[in-house]
Design a protein around this nucleic acid. Structure first.
Lengths: 335, 335
DNA sequence: TTGTAGGCGTTATCAT
DNA sequence: ATGATAACGCCTACAA
């Protein structure tokens, strides 16, 4: 182990006390500019790094954030995967560490423990898990936290969100305006916020046009590709002229099966999804979808958390604008 | 913030000193059994958790491991994604935290910093990045580390590996034995260990049978699906009767393109891949491939690191057996 | 076997 | 504006 440079070394090199050096390095007031400069120089030339464990212990911050996921699998969950990737990047760019706190199959006290153990300053929580006991437990411990995706029952918690309902409504609305009249939907996992909102958007689009939703066109899914495939026969049986899947994965599953049955997409049936994850999969086509702006989302959520940690204020809920991806699974008018 | 239970509280409740309590809790010798029991009871009833930052600072361990990835993207890298997932699970099951240390695009001192900052006890490194400056830098700092995938130039570093070369040789050998005579290969990223080994396996299979590799059948890829697709025309131009792609992603890309050109797989051309990631993608078919045993791999690598941290010994390199997946892209004899 | 005491590196308080 | 000094919670010689 190489020799460790401590704050003491820096202070000595700069000819000041530890306290002054600490203040200088942390940009706190009450330090003369020339001293601040001198300390900075010393730190740089000694290649000093503060020990975050010590800082944390002493009442400072470790600059580590936890990312709490509502799933224990990444390999078939592009949404979670992209979230991890983007948050990791955003955290790193702000010199924060990222601890991955995945849901555990069996006992689930460990997430809260990780936080209690004092190595995480705050957490980013995928809002889909709000309501689950282990999360309530976590929230009850008052750890600074920010939700990815607002949660209707917890409006008081800081959150960063994309407009699920409005986006879904716009997407479905467009289908309706394009002449589709029997739009089926494959929902996400019942009980999950994003699933509810997207379904609500589907209904809203109809209501806004004075239409009534044919409930036999609503199929319950779970965000996994497999269910899209498995349920496709039922969906096709309802003879829709369009399908709104609550995410791209299910849309892909549906399309796979539809094509096996020689259904032409978008000729016979238009398909739209959500998340934009089909873009990265080299499927040979892209699905018309709402693209989650993961990088912006992640940067925003990290910023909100960090400023919360710093004691700063932020709007309770921040909206991030998604993008509409015009893919190959719908027909677009010229222009 | 809830009241924090400290070691002191536990000790007091158990009627012993902090030192004794510490020893008892950490399972060190020199504690009477009844005391040990009493302390355990007290800890449990108080719902005590040791502050890992403090433990770390005091010379103990934070029980946090870092996972160093050679990429900054997960969304199109099933291998990295599965590794993250499995390692996270394995770490959690051993009560260790997991810090994600992804490669950063620009400056890359931060990984080493994260380690130096004292919040990571040891690291798991994807061996594909060994040789890159930032990793050499990291290794030079003598952090306990374990490689996922052995590295030929660094045999002294603990590592856990699957038999890339042997597996690839077996796979290609089988193709040869099945009557294929012009087997093309699409390699992984040149310079990456796994890519080299798999290519070496391809050559070995030929040599073992006294055959010479037709170098015009070797195509350089990069492990990404897109390149499999893009290079497919060239590969087809070489009129192979089989293709060995260095991972499933490229195999998928190749198959996509081949099918667009009405090539029958496996009828006209057999295809084999590596990693087994096609299993999770609901493609409508599975690729004959070598399945990476991610869970075993992850558990093993975490165990090796943890025992290393504990001062224990372990074999320098541990092999984990992969599995052959007989998929739909090759023809198998009866039985 | 057990307790006492010192220190890990930093931040925060309170004098100066 | 600056510098002692006391925590923070834990581990670990060393002493008893």
């Amino acid at each position: 182990m190489a020799d460790v440079v401590t704050l003491d070394d820096v202070a000595r090199a700069a000819g000041v006390s530890r306290a002054a050096a600490s203040r200088a390095l942390n940009g706190r007031p009450g330090v003369r500019d020339d001293v601040r400069e001198r300390v900075a120089q010393a730190a740089k030339s000694l290649d000093y790094r503060r020990n975050r464990a010590a800082a944390n212990l002493a009442g400072g911050s470790a600059s580590v954030i936890g990312l709490v996921l509502g799933t224990d699998r990444l390999h078939d969950d592009p949404y979670a995967t992209s979230l991890v990737e983007s948050v990791a990047r955003a955290a790193a760019s702000r010199d924060h560490g990222l601890m991955l706190l995945m849901k555990e199959p069996n006992q689930t006290t460990s997430t809260r423990n990780m936080v209690r153990d004092g190595l995480v300053d705050g957490v980013i929580i995928s809002s889909v898990v709000v309501g689950e006991p282990w999360i309530e437990d976590l929230l009850a411990s008052n750890v600074p936290s920010v939700l990815v995706g607002a949660h209707p029952e917890r409006p008081e918690i800081y959150s960063v969100d994309v407009e699920n309902l409005e986006s879904a409504a716009a997407l479905v609305g467009h289908l309706l305006d394009s002449g589709c009249s029997r739009i089926a939907t494959i929902t996400g996992t019942l009980g999950r916020v994003d699933a509810s909102l997207r379904l609500a958007g589907y209904r809203t689009a109809h209501e806004q046009r004075g239409l009534t939703v044919d409930e036999s066109l609503v199929f319950v899914g779970n965000f996994r590709r497999g269910v899209g495939y498995d349920i496709a026969d039922d969906v096709l049986g309802a003879a829709p002229d369009a399908v709104f899947a609550a995410n791209d994965e299910m849309a892909i599953g549906f399309i796979d099966r539809a094509r096996e049955r020689s259904v032409d997409i978008p000729g016979d049936i238009a398909v739209v999804g959500f998340d934009g994850s089909s873009m990265h999969q080299h499927l040979g086509f892209t699905i018309t979808s709402i693209i989650q702006p993961f990088d912006v989302l992640a940067e925003t959520v990290v910023d909100v958390l960090v400023s919360q940690l710093a004691g700063g204020e932020a709007p309770t809920t921040t909206m991030v604008p998604p993008t509409l991806l015009k893919g190959d699974t719908t027909i677009w008018e010229i222009g």
